[in-house]
Design a protein around this nucleic acid. Structure first.
Lengths: 96, 96
DNA sequence: AGCTGAGTTATCATAAAGGATAACTTGATC
DNA sequence: GATCAAGTTATCCTTTATGATAACTCAGCT
């Protein structure tokens, strides 16, 4: 299967691509940030699941982005990957 | 009543304090970011609640920080205040 | 072809978020 | 001291997130 997500993940293995990606990171959506953290930690979904005392299927669900994870859930995920999450607010590019 | 939160809110009315606060913002917790966004938008909890088609009590619950709001909830809140949220991952200050 | 590792999907149970309503506190103003 | 605006707290209900288990796809490998 070739889809956008697969391409993204593959591209992120390239350090140069990764650097530019990070520079633009705020533009990207949450799910991609999650996947990026896990991959930079060198973890599989199953390994991460163990650290979080949960199941790989639940990790997959988070990373597929079709839910609405709680902030503390995201923090625990990040922590298990060796990251700290912070939220940033920027003024809207006003529509009017 | 004088408590930490009241002091914070009052201090944030001062533009200089606000600027420094923003510089350090990532250190602060989510609830403070929420309150800051609403105040910078010049909205009361009730006004914001109307924009979100909900109740002021629910806004209060979010801002008091004793729950675990979903990411999309936070985005809607921010949007209604004229902001866009992004999440940022930074490597842990490793404990060992 | 079969095996394995990584991730996905489906489903169920339970905990928690979010919506709604009402009563309450507190500070300010008259 | 009555009133009002802003925020808090308590409670109930419905929806959803999360934990758990199992079966599945798919790629790579021998």
């Amino acid at each position: 299967m070739i889809n956008l997500k697969a391409l993204k993940e593959q591209a992120l293995q390239n350090p140069e691509v990764k650097a530019e990606y990070d520079r633009l990171a705020p533009e990207f959506e949450l799910a991609t940030t999650l996947i990026s953290m896990r991959q930079r930690a060198g973890l599989t979904q199953e390994e991460l699941a163990k650290r979080l005392h949960t199941q790989k299927s639940n990790i997959s669900r988070l990373e597929r982005g079709d839910s609405n994870p709680g902030w503390k859930t995201l923090q625990r995920y990040a922590d298990a990957c060796g990251f700290e999450l912070s939220v940033q607010a920027q003024r809207h590019k006003t529509a009017i």
